[in-house]
Design a protein around this nucleic acid. Structure first.
Lengths: 196, 196
DNA sequence: TAACTTTCCTAGGACCTCTAGGCAATTTGT
DNA sequence: ACAAATTGCCTAGAGGTCCTAGGAAAGTTA
């Protein structure tokens, strides 16, 4: 009987497509096997377990995301770069909700993603170069930037913004503007001015 | 034979404890049943299905979180209120990681949480009153605030900040400071100044 | 072409979700 | 107080997912 030509890479790619179609939480070994017309036990020659398959999707997503971010940053600087970078994230998350969800859930586990994570850090650091922050401010700013962008997209994906008629796209643009303001006026370590 | 005295509420509470101990993704009907020394089929008289049980944990978490946020805001205003509010979120997430994860994953589904969500919006709106923003700015600011706080805590929980030695607590404090800066200098809708 | 390796198969165990139907513990009506 | 009605938890079982073990055929190498 003809072989299906399975590869770790093809399995991960199929899992990623599946994730975008039916949600990352529904990516199962069985479902991927079904998509190849194969029994689920057959996949275990190519991936260690379900966890590794899902981590593969996460790694793929992070790589694609880094590619897009790098492209967005090319030839831009300052606020223009910030906006392009931010939009690249949000667009990717909208186009590939399953992959994007994967990039979240797996940060914790697996060392497969550690290299890609470094790439993301470097990209963000490059972006922030336009704001001329000194350590540890730059690290703090990177963390806040990540938090805001990912947090916004995550809440949006979870439907957390649907209770209000205000356009999410406009709120997004303003949030990026506000981030730019915060970065350009980055506060001192311990502000001595009174709180009132 | 003696009855275990199951209730929907007791089940949800047990599920929440379980979530904090072993992670939200490991909260199963079987595991909760085991904790009560009961067969899993017995739970289905009290909750419709596994999804509803998990949604119950989400609702519980959101309620507890709103309680803490309200307490943090009491008698405070301006930046002091912002800091207290933010810290309440982060502290809760650290103390109850499983519940907090639940509050995330379920936003999308189930109408059980819609009332609690409204309460959160109102609390955040009260917090922002100190910054005197006018609509739609206030809505935009609420969304950014949510995004940043949740995003930060989420990335921290996922281990996304562990590749750097900088104290996460300090980065958190700076992020809150930066948010305060952004809120006090909220940008206009379409800035007319050139981008360079 | 024979030996080897790889790919996919069948079989089966363990765990989870959920339904159906039954008996016993509790509550309600008189 | 006692029968009736309700409710709580049970057993049985079907269907799904994850994963291991061992086998047979397709493809590769000597």
């Amino acid at each position: 009987m003809a072989r299906a030509g399975l590869t770790a890479e093809r399995l991960v790619r199929a899992a990623a497509e599946l994730a975008d179609e039916v949600g990352f939480e529904n990516v199962t070994v069985s479902a991927v096997a079904r998509r190849f017309g194969v029994k689920d036990a057959s996949l275990y020659s190519h991936v260690k377990n379900a966890q590794e398959l899902r981590a593969g999707v996460a790694a793929l997503a992070l790589t694609e995301l880094a590619d897009r971010a790098a492209e967005a940053l090319a030839g831009r600087s300052g606020k223009e770069a910030l906006r392009a970078y931010a939009d690249a994230y949000r667009t990717y998350a909208k186009q590939h909700p399953g992959r994007y969800a994967a990039s979240w859930l797996m940060l914790e586990a697996e060392t497969a993603v550690v290299g890609v994570n470094r790439r993301h850090s470097e990209l963000t650091r490059a972006l922030l170069r336009g704001y001329a922050l000194r350590e540890p401010d730059e690290t703090d700013a990177i963390r806040m930037l990540h938090a805001t962008l990912h947090g916004f997209v995550r809440v949006e994906a979870a439907g957390g913004f649907e209770h209000h008629s205000r356009s999410v796209a406009k709120s997004w643009a303003r949030a990026v503007d506000a981030l730019d303001v915060a970065l350009r006026n980055w506060p001192d370590e311990e502000p001595t001015k009174k709180t009132r």
